[in-house]
C-alpha cells in the first residue's frame, strides 16, 4: 500500500518550549484517521507542520514529496479563511480557490454546496458558525488531492450540521485519498474511523485500527481513549 503521509523524527519547538518531539507517523492510502488528544495537545500544530504553516525539524513526506511547496499541492487543509474580509462574498472565496488551486473542481464544490445548503451569495461575515464550517469543509473537499486535513470541523456545531458534514465526507472523499480529522469528541466520528492517532505528552502515544481496539479491548473508542488518561484528566 502506498504511504500518503510519512513523518519521521519530527520535533517542534516554539518560544523555547518543546511542543512535539520524536513524532513518527505513517498513514496509508484510502483511510479515514481520527486525530485525538486534549485541547492544546498539539493536534492543530501537527496539522500545521504537515501543511508547512508551522516549521519544525524532521522529515515530512506527503505522497512522496518533501518540500513544503510540493507537499502543499498534494494536500488540502481546512484553513479558516483568515485571508478574507468579512464582506467577501462566498462566491468570491470560491473563485479564489478555483484560481489558486489547479485541483479545485467547481463541479464538486457545486455538489457539496448543494448538499450542505451553502448560499454562495452571502458574505463571510453573515455566515453562522455552522455554515462557515460547512463552507470550509466544502472548499477543502472540492479539491482533488491525496491528503485531506480537517482540523476540528465539529467544534461549536449543532448535531444536524455535524451529521451532514460526516455524510459529505463519506460521499465526496476520493477512494485513494486519506483523511486526517481532529476532534476531541470521539463518539460522533468513531463509526467512520479506520484508525485513531492520539497525541499525548508531546508525541504520538497511540496509532491503532479502530475495529482492532473494539475487538481486542471490548471497549468503545471513547472509553479506550479515556483509559489512556488514567485518573481522569479534565477534558472539556
Amino acid at each position: 500500500m502506498t504511504d500518503i503521509l510519512k513523518i519521521e523524527n519530527l520535533t517542534y519547538k516554539r518560544n523555547q518550549r518543546l511542543l512535539l518531539q520524536d513524532v513518527n507517523l505513517t498513514l496509508t492510502a484510502g483511510k479515514i484517521v481520527g486525530l485525538l488528544g486534549e485541547n492544546g495537545a498539539g493536534k492543530t500544530t501537527l496539522m500545521r507542520l504537515i501543511t508547512g504553516s508551522a516549521q519544525g525539524h524532521g522529515t515530512i513526506m506527503v505522497s512522496g514529496t518533501q518540500t513544503p511547496t510540493e507537499r502543499k499541492s498534494h494536500l488540502s487543509f481546512s484553513e479558516q479563511l483568515r485571508g478574507f474580509n468579512r464582506n467577501t462574498k462566498v462566491a468570491q472565496v470560491v473563485a479564489f480557490y478555483h484560481t489558486v488551486y489547479p485541483d479545485f473542481d467547481p463541479q464538486r464544490f457545486h455538489e457539496l454546496a448543494g448538499f450542505l445548503q451553502i448560499d454562495v451569495n452571502l458574505r463571510l461575515g453573515a455566515l453562522s458558525k455552522g455554515m462557515r464550517e460547512k463552507l470550509i469543509i466544502a472548499l477543502t473537499l472540492a479539491r482533488q488531492v491525496d491528503l485531506y486535513l480537517l482540523d476540528e470541523p465539529f467544534s461549536g456545531i449543532d448535531s444536524m450540521s455535524r451529521k451532514k458534514i460526516i455524510s459529505s465526507i463519506i460521499q465526496w472523499m476520493p477512494e485513494e485519498a486519506t483523511l486526517l480529522i481532529s476532534d476531541h469528541y470521539v463518539t460522533e466520528i468513531a463509526p467512520i474511523l479506520d484508525e485513531i492517532v492520539v497525541v499525548k505528552d508531546q508525541t504520538i502515544a497511540v496509532h491503532r485500527a479502530a475495529d482492532e481496539i473494539r475487538s481486542e479491548s471490548g471497549m468503545d473508542i471513547e472509553d479506550y481513549y479515556e483509559s489512556l488518561y488514567e485518573g481522569g484528566v479534565n477534558r472539556d
Binding site: 501543511t51 504553516s53 511547496t69 483568515r82 485571508g83 488551486y101
Partner: peptide, 11 residues
C-alpha cells in the same frame, strides 16, 4: 495568512 501561504508556489 493560511489562505495565501497554502497555495502551492515556491517562496
Amino acid at each position: 495568512a493560511d489562505s495565501y501561504r497554502l497555495i502551492p508556489v515556491e517562496e
